[in-house]
Design a protein around this nucleic acid. Structure first.
Lengths: 216, 216
DNA sequence: GGCGAATGAATGACGATTCATTCAGCCGCC
DNA sequence: GGCGGCTGAATGAATCGTCATTCATTCGCC
């Protein structure tokens, strides 16, 4: 515990070099540090079983310090969510630019989706499990993140339909849910299993099946 | 509240008629009553936000009574899960019997899956949201229920592959996850939205897309 | 010396669980 | 048939632990 504390302090102070205003670098770093610690702790023990004091100690700060950066325990979860969400959507939109083939677009989304979660398992656990604690929370989750994310997928599908590449007799909305659902299940499976997963291959499999079906 | 209490007592005592041993009928009823109340309360407020006292009061019993039937709060959740699970699997297996076409089998599973959840929204909420609180819990969930449920789906797919109706170049396991994931997302969507859903139609859409894909 | 950041012990609330007590039906005895 | 006492189910107020949060104090830098 002393070790964690010490290294955390070293990290903070070294990041503070040469800035006139100390806020930006220092504050950003500590906020990040706490958020990262919270992700880890929540992933390992679950949100309700985690104590703020644990998060603080993993971050190498005192319990009270958490409250200098966050409104409360809930705010930690919300912040983890919002930060990642911003990144995902930005990355997703960027990846869409300049890609035309609908199959290729869906493949990009699928790979991005699974590879991002594959990169940070703690984050994946928080997204697949901890963020779904409450209908209240999930509704909020849906209304912001999913809304936009679904729109991204849906746009690719609608385009393909208009180009005559995809069937027009399936609702784009339904197809979107199915595509997302398949990806989400892959992610959950990855989170729950100890085996290694070739997430890129799984992403491709989802796209293949979504487009071609299982029929011979 | 007095009303609830009274009717609960009436139910109990009326069930007690003419039995030499009073346990069986009476106990079963009260356990059920509490379990039903727990489903409702957990669905509305979330497991961690729910108090045992609330569950008790909805069931029309005193807080302490809950502990005569269940080991503790967790046990309520686990029991809801296990009871439904038993039913679902039995119903699923029964529905498989005597159906040959793989498409038809999948359709049966899909309809059963969504229609069951559609029938009792509180139960649906508990299954889609509350049962996924913790990686620990989800692992348990996976290892029992999903294991068997996946096997049910997988068998249908493997059969179809062997009959030459489905492609053999996709892993049956992967296909199973995708199929389940799609259904699960439909269910979650239903749980989170206020709109009415034609769950039978959605089940059919999932099967159609799963088999034929979106390609024109 | 003064300032803001950080600390962490103390507080207060909350809620799961317990258990001493009540209650109702039933039995055997007179 | 009626009565006192037994049994075990049910009660719910009190207990006990557990944290989230606060805030008086300290720290370290300009």
């Amino acid at each position: 515990m002393a070790g964690v504390s010490t290294s955390a302090m070293r990290a903070t102070s070294s990041a503070r070099r040469l800035s006139v205003v100390r806020q930006p670098a220092g504050v950003g770093d500590k906020r990040d540090l706490i958020l990262k610690a919270a992700t880890k702790v929540f992933a390992r023990h679950g949100f309700f079983q985690s104590q703020v004091a644990d998060v603080a100690s993993v971050a190498g700060v005192a319990a009270g310090t958490v409250y200098l950066y966050f409104k409360g325990k809930d705010d930690l979860l919300v912040s983890i969510f919002e930060r990642s969400m911003r990144d995902v959507l930005a990355e997703g939109r960027a990846a869409m630019a300049g890609v035309d083939g609908p199959a290729e677009r869906l493949r990009r989304i699928a790979r991005l989706h699974l590879e991002r979660l594959g990169r940070d398992k703690d984050l994946a656990v928080v997204f697949q499990v901890e963020l779904r604690h409450t209908v209240k929370f999930m509704e909020r989750f849906s209304e912001t993140f999913l809304q936009d994310y679904f729109a991204l997928i849906r746009a690719a599908i609608v385009d393909a339909q208009q180009q005559g590449v995809f069937r027009k007799d399936v609702s784009a909305t339904t197809a979107t849910k199915i595509f997302f659902g398949a990806l989400d299940e892959m992610a959950t499976n990855f989170v729950l299993s100890r085996r290694r997963h070739d997430l890129r291959a799984e992403a491709d499999a989802v796209v293949d099946l979504f487009i071609n079906g299982v029929k011979r």
